[in-house]
């Protein structure tokens, strides 16, 4: 990774931070789409989802999130979309014949725009698991992460004078208790499946190759537990959403309906993070250019400085 201009700024701030900089769980950007060594993720299969929303309840409990009311009623948790109160949502798409479901949450990008954007490292990608975490003690509430997330995932507490950013952290706090994402623990059909991203990708490939109408075994809850259920395979759109999108994501989706219709944007393969970093490393490589410019400026300012 090339030394960036902001290395200089950090040094100028008073500490020799080269060590801190290299120890910091950096972006995967310069390494392309390599998975973090123990990358964890979710495979969501719209064809298996029955829309029971057990995952939503489990998510709220596991993350201590408040209920969210829409419309007049104040009895039922019925969020319309992701929000600062809802980190995970199942939405139903009515395309005519059969409805389809989609699960929205943070995709835990391999080259996350939010992490690259955050000026104070409040959002970080874990170097081992690849989980994108949030630290409210660092956050200044600038909301650049919201601008930079291609999927509009991070949400802000607009009605709170002391607000935070909220987004799914893949139940990072449960890992220490030998548990995993509450949504996958709760899913009764295996539609939300937790596990190492590598294995989830293989599983997704396997499903894409299934013949529709045939019965197959589908892993449930966690891919490594060996627990399975038998389901009739249905036709899939031949694509894993999240395999290539903007450098790839650790939460991936399969569906029988066009992803676009389910609200997942069609995006290119190359991440915008890599655009930005390519640019700044070119412009500011090793701080040489700014340093040279500054030297030149000092010279001309001294020479031409007698105008006043």
């Amino acid at each position: 990774m090339s030394i960036q201009r902001r290395d200089f700024l950090k040094a100028a701030l008073g500490g020799s931070l080269a060590a801190a900089a290299s120890a910091r769980p950096g972006l995967a950007a310069s390494q392309g789409r390599d998975l973090p060594p123990e990358a964890l993720g979710i495979l969501y299969d719209s064809n298996l989802c029955i829309g029971c929303q057990a995952c939503m309840t489990a998510c709220k409990q596991a993350n201590d999130m408040p209920v969210e009311f829409s419309g007049q009623q104040t009895t039922w948790d019925n969020p319309l979309d992701l929000s600062a109160k809802t980190l995970n949502i199942i939405k139903m798409y009515d395309g005519g014949d059969t409805p389809a479901f989609v699960k929205r949450q943070c995709l835990h990008c391999l080259e996350p725009g939010c992490v690259s954007a955050c000026p104070v490292s409040a959002l970080e990608k874990d170097p081992k698991t690849g989980i994108v975490t949030y630290d409210k003690k660092a956050c200044i509430g600038c909301r650049y992460c919201q601008v930079a997330c291609p999927y509009n995932v991070p949400k802000f507490e607009w009605d709170n004078p002391f607000p935070q950013i909220r987004k799914c952290e893949l139940c990072n706090h449960l890992l220490a208790e030998e548990r995993y994402a509450a949504c996958c623990e709760a899913c009764p059909t295996g539609a939300s499946l937790f596990g190492p991203v590598k294995e989830l990708r293989q599983e997704a490939e396997r499903r894409l190759n299934m013949e529709p109408g045939q019965y197959h075994e589908f892993p449930v809850n966690h891919i490594s537990t060996g627990k399975t259920q038998t389901h009739k395979a249905e036709a899939y759109v031949p694509k894993i959403y999240g395999a290539d999108e903007l450098g790839g994501t650790q939460v991936m989706l399969l569906s029988g309906v066009d992803f676009n219709k389910l609200g997942l944007p069609e995006v290119r393969d190359k991440s915008y993070v890599s655009d930005l970093e390519g640019l700044s490393s070119k412009l500011y490589s090793y701080m040489l250019l700014p340093a040279a410019v500054f030297g030149g400026l000092l010279y001309v300012a001294k020479r031409h400085g007698d105008h006043e």
């Binding site: 960036q4 902001r6 290395d7 700024l9 950090k10 701030l13 008073g14 500490g15 931070l17 801190a20 900089a21 910091r24 950096g26 972006l27 992490v115 690259s116 954007a117 955050c118 000026p119 104070v120 490292s121 409210k136 003690k137 660092a138 956050c139 200044i140 509430g141 600038c142 909301r143 650049y144 802000f156 507490e157 002391f162 607000p163 935070q164 970093e277």
Partner: peptide, 20 residues
């Protein structure tokens, strides 16, 4: 900014994100 009382984090080297 929402969390203005932590604005000084921008100046603290250990918080700095050199990519931002």
């Amino acid at each position: 900014i929402g969390r203005y009382w932590q604005m000084h984090n921008v100046f603290l080297p250990w918080h700095a994100n050199i990519h931002s």
